[in-house]
Amino acid sequence: MYRLSGVTKHYSRGKETVRALDGIDLEIPDGGQLVIQGPTGGGKSTLLQMLGGLDRPTGGTVELAGHDLGAIGEAKLTKVRAELIGFVFQSFNLIPTLSAQENVETALVPMGIAKEERHKRAFAALESVGLGERSNHVPSELSGGQQQRVAIARALVKEPKVLLADEPTGNLDEETRDEIMELLHGLWRERGLTFIMVTHDTAIAGRAPRLATIRAGKVTVSENADAQVWAG
C-alpha cells in the first residue's frame, strides 16, 4: 500500500521557487492500478520519482510497505528500490554493451543472487515477455518494442511489489504501444502488482480504471468503472 500525505516538492530555479508537487494526498492499494496524466511540467514525473524513491519530497511522507521513503537512509532506500520497485522508462534505459539477458540480470545484481540463478531467472523473464530467442542480442540489435520488453523483463525479474512506468509507450508506434500495454496489463493481473504509470497519451488515460490528473502540483483522482481495460 502506498500512502502519500501532504507531499510537496519544491525546486529553486534562480530566484523563483517551483512547486512541482504542492500537497499531494493519495492512497494506492496493493495490487491496484493508477494512471497519472497531466500537462508537461505539471509534476507527473516528479510524483513518480517520489513513489520510486528516486528523489525525496521537500515535505510530507511517502509510505510504501511500512517505509517512509522520504525519511529512511540512503542504503535502506537503495535496498527498497532493489527489492520492492520495478522501473520501466520511456527511453528503455538499457545498458548498450550488455545483451538482453545481461541487462535483465543487472536488476538481480544488487540482491546478491548467484550467477547461475541470475541466468535462469533472467532467461525466464525474457521468455515471459516473448524474447527468449533474443536473449543474446544487444539493444542495438532489437526494435524499440523489443527493447521495451527487455526493460519490462528487467523490471519484473526480481518480482517486485510495485511496477512504476514512466511513459513506457512514449517512443513507440501505436501498434507496438498496444502490444506493450497489453503485456503490462497481463503481467499486472497475473502477478498482483501495484501498477502505476505516467502517460500523456489520452488513449491510454481513457482506458484507465483509476486516473490521477496532476496540474500545477495538485492531483485529482477519478474512477472510471466502465473503462475498456487492456487485454492481456
Binding site: G52, L54, E74, A75, T78, K79, R81, A82, E83, F87, F89, S91, N93, I95, P96, T106, A107, V109, P110, M111, R154
Partner: peptide
Amino acid sequence: VREFGTLKALGWRSKR
C-alpha cells in the same frame, strides 16, 4: 549519466 542513474534506480549502491 543515464546509464549510472538507471543502475542506481535498479538498486545498485553507489559504491558498486
